[in-house]
Design a protein around this nucleic acid. Sequence first.
RNA 1: GGUCUAGUAGCUCAGCUGGAUAGAGCAACAGCCUUCUAAGCUGUAGGUCCCAGGUUCGAGUCCUGGCUGGAUCACCA
Length: 591
Amino acid sequence: MLENNLKSSIEKAFETIFSPIGDLPVTVQKTRKDVAGDYTVNVFPFLKISKTNPQETAEKIGKYLVENNENIAKYEVIKGFLNLYIKAEYWLNEFKSSYKNVDFGISSSKPDAAVTMIEYSSPNTNKPLHLGHIRNNLLGYSVAELLKAAGKNVVKVNLVNDRGIHICKSMLAWQKWGNNATPESTGKKGDKLVGDYYVKFDKAYKQEIESLVSSGMEKEKAEKEAPILKEAQTMLRQWEAKDPEIFNLWQTMNGWVYEGFDITYKALGIDFDKIYYESNTYLLGKKIVMEGLEKGVIFKKEDGSVWADLTEDGLDQKLLLRADGTSVYMTQDIGTAQQRFDEYPIEDHIYVVGNEQNYHFQVLKLILKKLGYNWSDSIHHLSYGMVELPEGKMKSREGTVVDADDLIADMIQTARETSQELGKLEGYSEEEKESVYNTIALGALKYFMLKVDPKKGMMFNPKESIDFNGNTGPFIQYTYARIQSLKRKWAKEIEFSFEDSLLNEKEIELIKKVKDFENTIQDAAKAYSPAMIASYVYELAKEFNQFYHDFTILKEENESIKVMRLALSQWIGHTIKNSMKILGIAVPERM
RNA sequence: GGUCUAGUAGCUCAGCUGGAUAGAGCAACAGCCUUCUAAGCUGUAGGUCCCAGGUUCGAGUCCUGGCUGGAUCACCA
C-alpha cells in the first residue's frame, strides 16, 4: 500500500534528519483537489522534533523523500504543507496490474474464520413493512455485503418477533371481527390483512379506554383495565400454555404474514442465511433468567415478577418476566443471543436496530455481562436514525406510514415512465424492459436510503418522488451503462501496453480514484457505513462522466491511447459494479 | 426531570481520527447534442457551519454552558 510506504519513508526521514518521532502519528492524506500534488504531509505536529519552522522542516523532509523513495517524483512546500508528487509510472503499473480483475478491491473471506453475525430486519408479525423497515433491511443487507467485501466471514440472520402481546392483539381482533377472512377470500396480501386487525384492535382498545374514563376511571387505570386488553393478556397466557386452538390460529395468521413478507423481501432483493423465531428462543431466555435468579444476579418481587437491578450502573430496574410468568422482549433476546453464540464462533455480532432501542441494547449487554457471559462485549448495536416524513415520525396506528410495497410499486412506475420517455431500450423485449425499470427503480430507492450516514436520521418526502438525476442511483447506473455500451461497440478483448507518457492528468486522476476503492472498503467496513461506499462510487461516476465528455474513446485515432482508455473504462466499470453490489444495487447493461 | 443524540446553502445531504480558501445534488438562472447513451457536461448565484465561551500554531470537527428538534426512561416490541 502506497500510504504505508510513504509513512515509513517519512518516519525514516525524521529519524535521519532530526530525531525519531516516537509515538507521534504520521498522517499522509490525499492532497486537496484545488492544490497540485498527490499526497500531503502536515509537518506542524513535528515542529517540536525538528526545532525549526514549518517551511524548513517540510523542505528537508521533502528533499529526503525524493532522494530515497522511488515512487516520489518531486515535492512542493506551500504554507507548511509538504505536497508530494507520485510518479506517473507508479499509477500506470497499478492500472496495468488490476484493470482486468473483475473483483478489484474485494477481499475474499476464509470460510473457517470467526463469524461476523449481523441481525437485521427483525419484523413483528402483526403489521406490514413500511419505509422504516426498508431502511433497516437495506442497511443490514448492505453492511453484510460491505463486511464480506472487507474479507469477513458474514452470517446474515433475521429474528422474527412472532410471539408476544402484539400478535395476540391481531389474533383477538380477527377472532372477534374477522368472519374467517383469509388472504384468499379477501385477495389481500397476508401481512396487510393481519395488520388491518392490529389496527382494529387498537381502535376498539381506545374506545374502551374512553368509555371507562367517561364513567369516572382515571386514564392510567383505564389503560390497564380495558377488557379487550385483558382478553389479549389471557390469550398470551393461553399461547404460552400451548392451548391448541390459540396455537393453531397463531400459526395460521403468522403463515399469512410470512407469505406477505417474502414478497416484499424478494422485491427488495434481500435475504438471510438463517432465520430465528422468537417463539423458539424465548424459553431458553426464560431458563437463563431463572438460572440468574438462583445465582442471585436477578431478583424476584413479591408479586412474582422477575427483574434485573441495574441501578448500580446508573440505569433502572428492568423487567424480565411478568408476574403471570410470561416473558417480554428482553427475555427472548437473551435466549436468542445465547443460542447464537453456542451455534457459531462469533467474533462480532451486529444488531441493525433503530436508535429508539439504544436503551434496550445498553441493558441487554449489561444483563448478559451480569449473567457471566463474556461474549457480551462482542455485541454491537448498529443504531440507525429514524426515517421521518415532513409531518414528523411515521405512526402505523395513525395511518401516516409509507407502505413498503406501495413505495416500490411507485418507484417502478416512475422508472417506467421516465425510461419510456427517453426511449433508449429499443430492441429489448417487454420482459427485458420491465427488468430494467425494476433495476432503476430499486437503484434509486436503495441509493437514496443508503447514501445517508446510518447513524443520522433522514427525511423522506412522499410528495416529491425520488430523483433520477444528480447524486442518485440511476446516475451511477447510467454511467455503468455508458461503459457497457463502449465495450459492446469495441467487441474485442481489451489488451494494451504502452509508455507512461501517454497518460493525461484526468486519466491519472481516475486511476487514483479507482485505486482508492480498496481503502474505502476498509474504512467503510470499520465504520459499518455503506454511505461511504455510496459517496465513493458517486465521485467515481462523476469523474468518469467528465472524462467521457472531455475526451474521445472509441473515436480516438491513436490506437494505443484508444485501447488504454477502454481498459480504464472497463476497470471503472468493474469498480462501479462492485461498489453498487455492496449497496445491494444491480447495474443495467443499457438504460 | 434524568440519559442519549442531532443542528452545515431555500431543500436533501457530504465533510474520516483537529489542518490549506467549508463541498455535492435538487430547486433557480445561463450555456453545450448532424460526433462513443444529454438519466450527461460546463458556468452563475446561494453560508453568522444554532449561540456563547474555552483548549492550541490551527476548530464545522475536541471540551463546557445555553437554545432548538428527536429518541428513550413500560408487566410494549
